[in-house]
Design a protein around this nucleic acid. Structure first.
Length: 428
DNA sequence: TGAAATGTTGGGGCG
DNA sequence: ACGCCCCAACATTTC
């Protein structure tokens, strides 16, 4: 064992050295900070070998490591089952405390409570911090102490309780790290290869146009924040700061993020079940051939196909188009929202369980504050309304107006009536 | 953060 | 001048 006492900062979804609450506290503690990241075998094993998220994490860690090297420090990177890794770490180092930022997903809660229990047995204190959200799941509750399940009153309360002191940054003491020179592993050594799909750079400068143009996929007014919020390469506080300065509609989207996080926290059954039980009786058709055509963007509806092809090519999809494709899968094809959710989970670089699940249930009409089931998007109307020049569609479906484009796989009128009938019968 | 079906209104053509 | 029809435009209801 290395005898000199250290504290460990465990990086998880906070892959940055600035404005980081747990890292800030660790770096100001009396002991040098050992920065740690664990590639979790249980998360990695089911993934494709060129998963864009793993590449993104690996690159973000590399950046952290480069910055640490400026201060004669380095990242310690492990791969394995986290509890097992911790059992090894306490033998290897003289650990005086463990610092981490809280994660509210069910998997993470279980993991952290098991590891917390183990460290407690070892006499090692764990210090956990709020970082991912402005308000934690239990901070915004109704008068009766129960969680909100409707967005609008939740948002109202969120704004009521919000003040800019919640945005104060947590500075990191760069001199507080353990002097070290741990080897930095190549991506191949953790069993992966570099993905061609990369995150787009964050775009703050067009945020003021977000409210006006966000529904038009041909306009590039998105922030591209998704993966950065997911993995913490920027802090939520900074994102909210920018939103309060520029755009209320964008701020509202960040509040949706926290809304769905607290829904998942309080109602973890939404992972496998509809929020409203009656929607679990819908007789999904789940035709595998049709599901395949949706996945590959070969439905014959230009807006749907463009979105699905954008997803595969870039690891993201415009928000409006996510709604159109999700509505098409669940309503026109009557395919279970869980199958669509899983496909998005596999391909979205900014995949976030709470948001993905919440928005799929919203689109399917099964969710807590969902669109009513009879609100069925007309994919051609959506195309006309939101991509009138076909600028977006042309980018991903160049053949959309040519003879060789696949004909629509369903008749809209028939599919709409079939969906209404099937949903109605399901909830009776 | 729909869209289709149905209802209402009002102007113009016409006998 | 009047009633009637047509139909576009808009509003309301329904799924």
């Amino acid at each position: 064992m290395h005898q000199s006492p250290v504290v460990v900062h465990w990086f998880r979804r906070d892959l940055r050295l600035s404005d980081n609450p747990a890292l800030s506290a660790a770096s100001h503690s009396p002991f040098p900070t050992l920065p740690l990241f664990i590639f979790d075998r249980e998360i990695l094993d089911p993934l494709e070998r060129d998963d864009a998220r793993v590449s993104f994490i690996h690159e973000s860690l590399q950046q952290i490591n480069l910055d640490l090297q400026q201060h004669q420090a380095s990242l310690l990177i492990k791969k394995g089952e986290p509890l097992h890794v911790w059992k090894e770490l306490v033998k290897e180092f003289n650990i005086q405390g463990v610092y981490l930022n809280r994660d509210y997903e069910p998997y993470a809660l279980n993991r952290d409570s098991a590891i917390g229990e183990f460290l407690k047995q070892q006499g090692i204190p764990v210090y956990s911090f709020q970082d991912q959200v402005i308000f934690e799941p239990n901070e915004i509750l109704k008068a009766d102490g129960k969680p909100y399940t409707i967005y609008t009153p939740y948002k109202k309360k969120w704004l009521e309780r919000f003040d800019t002191s919640r945005l104060n940054a947590f500075p990191v003491n760069k001199k507080g790290f353990l002097t070290s020179n741990f080897p930095f592993p190549a991506i191949q050594s953790i069993g992966f290869q570099e993905s061609k799909v990369k995150a787009k750079p964050i775009q703050w400068d067009q945020l003021h146009q977000y409210g006006e143009w966000r529904d038009f996929p041909a306009k590039a007014v998105g922030s591209n924040l998704g993966p950065h919020l997911r993995f913490g390469t920027i802090s939520t506080r900074e994102a909210v700061q920018r939103a309060t300065e520029t755009n209320e509609v964008f701020l509202s989207e960040l509040i949706w993020r926290e809304f769905f996080m607290q829904i998942l926290f309080h109602f973890p059954s939404v992972i496998t079940h509809s929020f409203h039980a009656k929607y679990d009786r819908i007789a999904w058709r789940n035709n595998p051939e049709e599901f395949g055509r949706w996945c590959e963007g070969k439905t014959g509806f230009p807006m749907v196909d463009a979105g699905m092809r954008e997803l595969k090519a870039t690891g993201t999809m415009h928000n409006r188009v996510r709604m159109v494709t999700a509505s098409f899968l669940t309503k026109h094809l009557l395919i279970d929202w869980r199958l669509g959710e899983a496909w998005f989970a596999k391909h979205l670089l900014d995949y976030e369980l709470a948001s993905n699940n919440g928005n799929w249930q919203w689109a399917a009409g099964t969710g807590c504050d969902a669109a009513p089931y009879f609100r069925i998007f007309n994919p051609m109307e959506q195309f006309k309304k939101f991509d009138p020049q076909a600028m977006y569609v042309r980018k991903y479906v160049p053949e959309w107006d040519r003879f060789d484009y696949v004909p629509p796989m369903v008749d809209h009128k028939m599919a709409r009536e079939r969906a209404l009938k099937t949903y109605k019968e399901g909830i009776m």
